[in-house]
Design a protein around this nucleic acid. Sequence first.
DNA 1: AGCGAATATTTAGCGTCCGAAGTATTCTTT
DNA 2: AAAGAATACTTCGGACGCTAAATATTCGCT
Lengths: 170, 170
Amino acid sequence: MVSRADPDVQTPPDAQGEVDRIFETVVYLYTESRRVTKALARQHGLTGPQVTALKILEGFGALSLSELSAHMSAKNSTITGIVDRMERDGLVTRERSTADRRVVHIRPTERGRSIAAAVPVTAMEMFGAALSSLSPRDRSELTRILGILAERVRERIANEEALADTNPGD
Amino acid sequence: MVSRADPDVQTPPDAQGEVDRIFETVVYLYTESRRVTKALARQHGLTGPQVTALKILEGFGALSLSELSAHMSAKNSTITGIVDRMERDGLVTRERSTADRRVVHIRPTERGRSIAAAVPVTAMEMFGAALSSLSPRDRSELTRILGILAERVRERIANEEALADTNPGD
DNA sequence: AGCGAATATTTAGCGTCCGAAGTATTCTTT
DNA sequence: AAAGAATACTTCGGACGCTAAATATTCGCT
């Protein structure tokens, strides 16, 4: 119950201001890094997720759709659409697995592989450069603190799932 | 030129590992906060961005579409669509400004305000709680370092725009 | 063998997101 | 004051991204 809309109840104003600022910054950094990836991909006539997919496939050779979606942190139905468009554009092929006929293997074409090789690794080239400009001490502090933060968030998510059935629903 | 694909060229491995970890953490935190917002919004029959918009409007009373889109880190064309659906659902109204007839003021309706009030603080309740669990010193360090980082990224974006015309194009 | 549960992928529908182009209005410059 | 630049917003087309439901196949159990 830390409502900023209610002026009576106030946590230490510094803390709340910091939370807002950190949150905004995380959103900003994420948005910008995504924008950069997209711009890079665009120079080769494809989209951000397509480049991401090709880079992943480049490393593995071929993956099932489920494996690919796991690596991309997206749902299968989303990846189906992305693969549809990549197949249409001759970047990957679909092959039904003979071992398990439910499974589809996604494999990059020659064209797909050459584009993957041409795009610089740097999704986060700019991001990385900005990080490099931090002092080593600040950078390792950032790593340490963000690590703690992510761990806390993970704990909370685990709790939330454990309590899922206590939700009365509306 | 910090390509990890080339094993010959390597920046200090610690630094690169840190960059990767920080990047991953930022993505993780962003993704999770968005998922939580969405789940919260759903309990009231609306979407994540709609709740975000209502929360922002709750604080300001009314905003122009451009102001709203700036607060939401999205493009005007995106916000136009979101406002369309919110207007359709009776959550906000559009009013043409009399001072400058190009401007449209977005104002929450009674229904919109009551929903905004009903949804717990927002997005980052979980995120905020996790941040609160950090020591005050870590939290202010995080604020400081992220601030520097965002500033560096902003500088790079400014440079990038200044150099836009040197791009030979493909 | 066969029936139901589990798994892998796709389809359908909705809501973001963006960039480019279009419209209306205001500002600037002459 | 009128042409041209700038600003505010909308429209359009394409690509994600998600959930729910459909389809196909395999697994588990009797």
